[in-house]
Amino acid sequence: MNSAELTLGKHVFITAEAAQPTPPEAGPRSALRISLLTLAGVLLLWWGVCASGLIAPLFLPPPQAIVAKLWLTATRGYMDATLWQHLGASAFRIVTALVAAVLFAVPVGIAIGLSRTARGVLDPLIEFYRPIPPLAYLPLIVIWFGIGELSKVLLIYLAIFAPIAIATATGVRNVDPTRLRAAQSLGASRWQLIRHVIVPSAQPDILTGVRIGLGTGWSTLVAAELVAATRGLGFMVQSAAQFLVTDVVVLGIIVIAVIAFTLELGLRALQRRLVPWQGQSR
């Protein structure tokens, strides 16, 4: 290491070259590799247990049977509809419920976050129904709204609504007060504050609410499709279970999981695109 000495009165100044930067730690790629290895391990274990004959195919069909069933349901179908038609029916219900929930829950969340009156009125209502399992109020919805599409979409809608409204309200309440003052001292009116500062500031929280909502909505799907459905992934799993067609049950579960995971990844990508500053310096 090069160094130089400089003396000034009693004080000695020693200048040295900067140390070499250390190489960065192994990043998220290695985490992904571990996840993939885990997945491969589970598949291998599954295959091994089935191949050894320890568990009868009625209880756990081997992976290759699921793949064969995937091909069969995709081309010829199960219960008068192909896998795609089941999937389409479920996707339609989820998307309709999600769009409706975003349209209503975001304004409601903003109102709760901004106004004490709105909070007093709406907060207890949301907190009252939110912890109730959807299956518990499903009968009431059927009595009120019948057994058509409306009841199914409504059930999913209710599951998505609460997380989005609560997350939006939190986002609105947590807006940096300095940001509000900055806008006020630039002459912003109350309406301009909401439109130009509060809502955009709450955007990361709203998106997190959508992510959580979509998760709970998707998991309500099976409950929703218990009611007189003739199509849908939840219906497919339910009816297959009644006839002990285990491979379709497992296939349905895997398809539901894969789609939920894909949606989650998609929303995370959307979040990175829409609010790239989140997780940055401030």
Binding site: T178, R181, A182, S185, H196, P200, W277
Partner: peptide
């Protein structure tokens, strides 16, 4: 608050979007 009195904050309070 009013626009004739401009304020600069310690925490810059910029709008990241």
């Amino acid at each position: 608050p009013g626009a004739e009195r401009g304020v600069v904050f310690q925490d810059d309070a910029l709008l990241p979007w």
